[in-house]
Simulated scan of single mutants.
Amino acid sequence: MMKGVHFLAIVALLSLASSFVSAFDPSPLQDICVAIDDPKSAVFVNGKFCKDLKDTKADDFYFSGLQIPGNTDNRVGSNVTTVNVDQIPGLNTLGISLVRIDYAPYGQNPPHTHPRATEILVVVEGTLLVGFVTSNPENRLFTKVLKKGDVFVFPIGLIHFQFNAGKTNAVAFAGLSSQNAGVITIANAVFGSNLPINSDVLAKAFQLDKNIIKDLQKKF
């Protein structure tokens, strides 16, 4: 009986450990692993082929362009310029990435999640209302108004947002703890999925008339 209890305890601990391990990018076992699409003379690591070390150059770790404002002329009034492993191949296996976010007056980076990364954001221009919501059942909102030089953290996987509360443009930069953090924009995923989620399901979930749900699905 006691051996059985010990066995179950070990299984539980291993399950817990594996959940922690899978929650973040794996630690690299080499100095660098520059991502390359051509598999010839390459090694497959972390979902990418590694360039031969003798062919690696400084440009594999370089990106230029974050000084250029993004186009915010869209329905949400924001633009995200992403710098991840697709822009800097040398980021492969290093577990970090970066974004620049531009906001038009009263524009927003709408509620979304990063399934693979915690985000740390710094405001460099303007004023932002930001926040994140914890998981069920608390669904507690943590929110703050940020000004130039202020920093805020959005924990991994939690729904969060930024809203330009000022009459002028705003700019922020954010670091993410993944080479490819992923993003799920809530409204797009719920109302713009391919194939569409059944409108009866969404009407009951949001406690809305089905015609309103269908109208929202058309917009997305």
Rank of each mutant, 00 (worst) to 15 (best):
V151R: 08
R100E: 00
P196K: 02
L8T: 03
F173S: 01
T127C: 11
F44Q: 05
A203N: 02
S18F: 13
V133P: 01
D86L: 10
V83T: 02
P111Y: 07
F7I: 10
I212E: 04
F44E: 06
G175Q: 02
F61H: 04
L29Y: 13
N46T: 04
D37V: 06
L141I: 13
L128K: 00
S135G: 12
V124E: 01
G90P: 11
V80D: 01
A187C: 06
N139M: 10
K48M: 08
S19T: 06
F63H: 14
Y106I: 07
L158C: 06
D102I: 06
N136R: 15
P196Y: 06
H112I: 09
G90C: 06
G149H: 04
N84E: 00
T82M: 13
C50H: 03
P110A: 05
F154M: 09
K48I: 03
L91H: 11
A17H: 11
V123L: 03
N84M: 06
F61N: 04
R100M: 02
G65T: 05
T72A: 03
S15P: 05
N211V: 07
L16D: 12
D209Q: 14
A23P: 11
F161V: 02
F20R: 14
P137T: 01
R100F: 00
S97G: 07
V43G: 12
M2L: 14
P110E: 12
P155Q: 01
G131S: 07
L13G: 11
A170H: 08
F63N: 05
T118H: 04
H160I: 01
T127V: 12
H114Q: 00
R75M: 11
V133S: 03
G107N: 08
I10W: 05
V76M: 05
A17Y: 13
P69F: 08
L29G: 13
K144I: 07
S78T: 09
G166R: 02
V34W: 01
S97L: 02
K148H: 01
N84S: 12
D86G: 09
T113M: 14
Q87R: 14
N79W: 13
A170D: 03
V43N: 15
S97C: 06
S135E: 08
V43S: 15
P111K: 03
N180K: 03
K148M: 07
D52P: 08
N79G: 13
D25W: 02
S41V: 06
N84C: 11
D31H: 09
D209W: 05
N92Y: 05
F61Y: 12
N164S: 10
N74Q: 09
P69H: 01
I68D: 09
S41F: 13
K147Y: 04
N139C: 07
H6W: 05
A23Y: 10
T72V: 13
P69Y: 03
F7E: 10
G166A: 12
P115T: 04
Q217H: 03
P137G: 00
T72N: 09
I186Y: 09
F161A: 01
V99T: 01
V130S: 06
D150A: 03
G4C: 07
T82I: 11
V171W: 00
F206V: 03
S177D: 08
L202W: 06
I36N: 14
G182A: 12
K3N: 13
S177F: 02
V133N: 01
G95H: 05
N164G: 10
G131H: 13
Q67M: 09
